[in-house]
């Protein structure tokens, strides 16, 4: 960083405050386990013994008030859509949404004749990462979460946004 690099001992690190905050936030996103249908089983399998999610710092939380990331796993129906919005509003900022599976992305295999299926959860909540698949493999979900981590790292929470 120009003037301050290589001036101190080895165990002193100099960085921008933005980056430090980004690093802290991105490496421990606690996810809100919002499992609705089949993708919920793959989410559970990702959190279980073989593909462990906790080694990446992600802990499952059942209450929206304690979570950072909402993983919408499964089909959202019209009856459920209003509740999804309510749960999203209960989460505290900064919050992110991952749409897992093709049903949450765009209605999935039910897009044509499903009168009761919401064609994509981005109609009711803003989505950050889409993970395709039916259901996506645990490795695919982990890649989606790593992409979310990259996105969080690039955020600059301290910059004043120009109007």
């Amino acid at each position: 960083m120009g003037l301050l690099e290589n001036r101190f001992q080895d165990n002193v690190v100099v960085a921008k405050l933005d980056k430090l905050i980004g690093w802290a936030r991105s490496t421990s996103p606690w996810y809100f386990q919002f499992g609705l249908a089949c993708c919920a089983i793959e989410m559970m399998a990702t959190a279980a013994s073989r593909h462990d999610l906790e080694r990446l710092g992600m802990m499952p939380r059942s209450s929206p008030r304690q979570a950072d990331v909402m993983i919408v796993a499964g089909t959202v129906t019209m009856k459920m859509a209003l509740r999804v919005k309510k749960l999203y509003e209960q989460m505290a900022d900064p919050k992110y949404v991952i749409a897992m599976g093709s049903c949450a992305t765009s209605g999935g295999p039910y897009w044509q004749h499903g009168y009761h299926v919401l064609k994509g959860v981005d109609i009711v909540v803003p989505v950050d990462v889409y993970v395709p698949g039916c259901p996506p493999r645990p490795e695919a979900l982990i890649e989606g979460l790593l992409k979310l981590q990259e996105k969080i790292l690039e955020e600059r929470p301290l910059t004043r946004k120009m109007a």
């Binding site: 019209m78 009856k79 859509a81 765009s106 064609k119 994509g120």
Partner: peptide, 29 residues
């Protein structure tokens, strides 16, 4: 189905309703 849904879906001449509580129902995006 929700209590305020209109129509009986499995009838052969069922027409899906346009919106439900402000959300667009049919498949066209």
């Amino acid at each position: 189905l929700p209590e305020d849904w209109e129509g009986y879906p499995l009838r052969k001449d069922y027409e899906v309703q346009e919106t439900y509580h402000g959300i667009v129902v049919p498949k066209v995006k």
